[in-house]
Structure formats: C-alpha cells, structure tokens
Amino acid sequence: MAPPAGKRVKGVQIFRPFVYGTTAQLFDDKTNPKPPGVPDDHTHSWTVFVKGIDDVDITYWLRRVQFKLHESIPNHVRMIEATKNQPFLLRETGWGEFEITIKLYYAPESSEKPQTLYHHLRLHPYGRTDEEKETMRLNGGEVISWAYEEQLFNEPYEPFYEILTSGAVPASSAGPSKNSTKPTAGGKSKEKGKDKDDQKPVRSEGGVLERSAMIPLTNRPGQPFSRETETVEVKKLQEALVKVEELMTKTKAEVAGREKRLKELKAEAGK
C-alpha cells in the first residue's frame, strides 16, 4: 500500500456504479460441450465477474480483484489483475453452489484498503416463484445472478479525487488551476496523459460517459441496470410504503380497540 499522498478531501463522497455476479450454464453436448479435462462430476460452467455498468472501463479505480472460491477447488484464491476495458472475469466449472468472497483492491492512487463483497454462486434457477425461475431458465439456459452496487469513496485522497473527477468531459475550470497543481503526485502526470488522449468525451453504447458515475437511461439486452430499472424500483418501494401506511392505520385501530377492551376488563376486575 502506498503511503497516503496528500490529504483527504473533506466532506466529499464520490460514487461509481458497478456490477458483479455470476453467470452459470449447464453442460450440454450441443450448446455448451464439456471441454476436455473437466472432471466428470462437474455439471456447470460458470463465470464470476466484476465490471463497470454498461461495460465501461473501471480499471482506473479498481486495480485488481481477488475471488476466493470454495476450498475444494484447486487454487481457490484467484487474483485477477486489471486490463483496460476488460471486466474482471473468472471462468470455472463445478457442480455446487457456494459463497464467493470478492475482494476489491483499489488503484494505488487511492491509498485505500481493499474491501470485501460476498456473492452466492447460483447454478440453479432461483427466485421466489416458479414463474421467476422459468424466466431464468429461458434466458438461453443461463442462470444469471447479478447485483448492482455502488462503490462509495468517502473523502478520497487528493490525487485520487483528481482521478475520479476528470476524464469524462473536458474540465470546465480545470485549465489553469490544474497546471498549477502539477507537481504534487506521480499519478497525476499519467492522468494528464490520459486526458490528452480522450479530450473528446467517450460514450459507451448506452450513452454512459467513460470515467463517469452515470447510469444508462434505458435497459438493453444484457444490461439490466439503468435509470428505468431504478424508477421501477422506487415506484415499487413507494407503493410498498403506501401499503405499510394502510396496514399501520389498521393495526393502530386494532390496538386502540384492544386497549379499550382491556381497560374495560380491568375496570371490571377492579370492581
């Protein structure tokens, strides 16, 4: 871990959305033939990944990812190093579900400690209803278990702050002041070089700017996380809230009735 460079930027929180999860598929002679060398009892091929939303590059803040698999798997701690524009991806085969420990190591400029996520590998369709299970099975026979998450950087160090707040769009007021802060860190000079490369904002297919914290507007096949999904979820939660409030008033009335009854009974007992 590099010694902290500069100071923390107080009171600032920066987030980056990303997706992690697993995709599993049953071995099948036609669509998914078992490669040679795979033990007989393995029934599925699966991948576990950490990637940017809409497949944008996240390697500028995430340096490497450690996947800790089940102990029974040979060499069960796997470290995946960052390659630009590639997701952190691990392919495996197996027969059982287990919990994968995903440890995120951040870019050295951040000087932050690694953080851990847990994800349950799903090989079999899951879901609360049969219907949900069925839709999962229909999806090309793949069982996907993906999770959206947002990485929050609370009070990042200054060099890292600089990295997290540049590169997506040509900086508005950056010009002169940026030059003046030049001699602070080594990471910055690299950063500046990158800046020159992508002066023009780069957008992914879903309209997300590279190096930004944006979320695509609409869903696309293979990209289930978007503003659309968010709005649906917010709506759902709001509906649930309304329902809770209804239940609450009902329960309150019930409680009031019971209290009254209890009082009566007690008064009677007191006679």
Partner: peptide, 13 residues
Amino acid sequence: IYGVSYHDRLGSG
C-alpha cells in the same frame, strides 16, 4: 457526472 456529493459527516474510506 462524476457522482460527487458533499456531506457534513463522513467516515473516510
């Protein structure tokens, strides 16, 4: 765009 927000109290990291 960069998802920057300001808070009064933050545990850093």
